[in-house]
Design a protein around this nucleic acid. Structure first.
Length: 485
RNA sequence: GUCCCCAUCGUCUAGAUGGCCUAGGACAUCAGAUUCUCAUUCUGAAAACACGGGUUCAAAUCCCGUUGGGGGCACCA
């Protein structure tokens, strides 16, 4: 097989998003599988919309999802080369100078809409009888000839369109800046790109590009147009629709491995295999196996992948990942943000009890936030209501209230000489039996007192973590809150 | 509007050369079991070949049409 060279060619006009990430992944897989090269070429020729911060986002997020590349280049560095090729094309008559004004252009396009034919500038003919306007620089348009153009695509197969539907597209703006359909061809050719994997939203562009390749007698790389990813509303996911940047994915607390594993299945699958390592992906992936039809984004499934990956991640690694999140949460709650070495060791110890309960790293951090809080966290309305519901005693009509239970629990905790799980379990159950109250009726109040939520990590373990003083403080604190209402 | 593409459970998908498909897996949903809460885990249920014509002994798989969906149609990429 020839040398495999693939590239990701994002424009730095927005934060790196899901669609680009999958394109990057599929390109990367091809490069790795065939021991080829994976290039990143930032398509920054649109100076108006390109921003450095977006370029940084592309590079940062690629790193975060673990896709290493061989080289990064800026398309704007090749502008001289683009102009040179353009002038050669001008000499050969492949392109022409067009002085069409914006108004004239729009008018023509409106008419073309009706006939279904694409724009042909009057300036394409030498003897047009038109007078070159003064002080106006021309744009350079590609001369599309009559006929049909056929594209061979690894996924879409052979497609043909009539050239009358391809307009005489501009390759160079009046200021000399190259435009996408031209620059991309020159750069891909110069970089000896062997395979172009990109979203099928580029499919019709490929016809224009094919014309450029042919006019220059250049070889067209293998085209691989993968299906677009559709959002919940069934429309294409794009930078414009929002809510789908990798930054957001990362900030949600999604693991990059889980993310990659999820998106590899957007348009591709291997038998019944759901979870696979990147090594397996590289082995099993074939770009010819990519599906034709578009895939819908399913955030729920991403979450389930993430939950699975969290349970499989080492405890110390998870602690490393949630510490910054935890510090952030503490800061938001006006708490001290410093976590000691002991705190971290403690987290590693209890992580097995925590990680099965979280779908994201943020959820994971929130699960243990109560432990690091000095005073207390806000108790939401739903949980406040629980505190005011009386509890039935056995089969009788008699009831007790939350204060009664909390006061007794406090007494029990105080009376324990040692706080170990067994003692707590025995004593709490004794109390429950004696009063004819279900254990759950007791535990929900303890949870609210200690974790500020109606549920949490296993109760008896939880009590041993917090220790006598903090438990008693939190219970008495909660009782005052109840009394105060 | 026009050009191009597509069509398997709600969603992601498996389904080479038509027979092994009374269509498999996963997420979500529902029910049950396990469990000190919440989870996890386990078991089970419901859930799809868009429709209509062909071709064939045989079609989810091939052909045509209809309908539906998506993408493109820039001095953006």
């Amino acid at each position: 097989m020839q040398d495999i060279k693939v590239r990701l060619a994002p424009s730095p006009t927005g934060l790196f998003h899901i669609g680009s990430a999958r394109t990057a992944l599929f390109n990367w897989l091809v490069a790795k599988k065939y021991d080829g090269k994976f290039f990143v070429r930032i398509e920054d020729t649109d100076k108006e919309r390109s921003k450095d911060e977006y370029m940084q986002s592309i590079l940062d997020e690629l790193k975060w999802i673990g896709l290493d590349h061989d080289d990064v280049s800026l398309q704007s560095n090749n502008i001289d080369r683009h102009r040179q090729v353009a002038s050669e094309m001008l000499e050969k008559g492949l392109v022409y100078k067009c002085y069409l004004s914006a108004g004239e252009r729009e008018k023509m396009r409106a008419e073309n809409m009706k006939t279904g034919r694409a724009l042909r500038s009057p300036w394409r003919n030498e003897n047009n009888g038109l007078k070159i306007p003064e002080n106006v620089e021309p744009s350079i348009r590609f001369r599309v000839h009559e006929g049909k153009t056929t594209l061979v695509d690894a996924i879409l197969g052979e497609t043909t369109i009539d050239n009358s539907t391809i307009e005489d597209f501009i390759i160079l703006k009046p200021n000399g800046d190259p435009l996408y359909n031209f620059a991309v061809v020159v750069d891909d050719h110069d970089m000896e790109i062997s395979h172009i994997l990109r979203g099928s939203d580029h499919h019709t562009n490929s016809f224009k590009q094919a014309l450029v390749y042919k006019s220059l007698n250049w070889e067209i790389p293998v085209l691989v147009h993968m299906p677009v990813i559709l959002a919940d509303d069934g429309k294409k996911m794009s930078k414009r629709t929002g809510g789908n940047t990798i930054q957001e994915i990362r900030e949600m607390g999604i693991l990059p491995t889980a993310f990659i594993n999820y998106i590899v299945h957007l348009g591709w699958g291997y038998k019944d295999l759901e979870f696979m390592s990147t090594k397996e992906m590289i082995d099993l992936f074939e770009y010819t196996d990519i599906n034709v039809s578009p895939a819908h984004w399913d955030g729920q499934k991403l979450l389930s992948f993430n939950a699975k990956y969290i349970t499989q991640t080492d405890d110390d690694e998870l602690v490393r990942l949630i510490v910054p999140i935890l510090q952030d949460l503490l800061k938001k709650n006006s708490q001290e943000t410093l976590l000691s070495l002991d705190d971290k060791l403690f987290l590693i110890n209890i992580m097995p009890l925590l990680k099965v309960r979280a779908k994201t790293l943020v959820e994971l951090a929130n699960l243990i936030l109560f432990y690091f809080v000095k005073g207390r966290l806000d108790i939401d309305e739903k949980n406040m209501k629980i505190l005011y519901k009386s509890v039935k005693i056995g089969d009788t009509e008699d009831t007790v209230d939350s204060q009664f239970i909390l006061k007794n629990v406090a007494e029990i905790i105080r009376s324990c000489s040692v706080l170990d799980e067994e003692t707590i379990e025995t004593k709490l159950n004794e109390f429950a039996d004696k009063n004819g109250i279900k254990m759950r009726s007791i535990s929900k109040f303890i949870y609210i007192a200690l974790t500020f939520n109606e549920f949490g990590p296993p109760l008896y373990a939880l009590i041993t973590w917090l220790g006598k003083d903090r438990i008693l403080n939190r219970i008495t604190d909660l009782i005052t809150i109840i009394d105060g209402k």
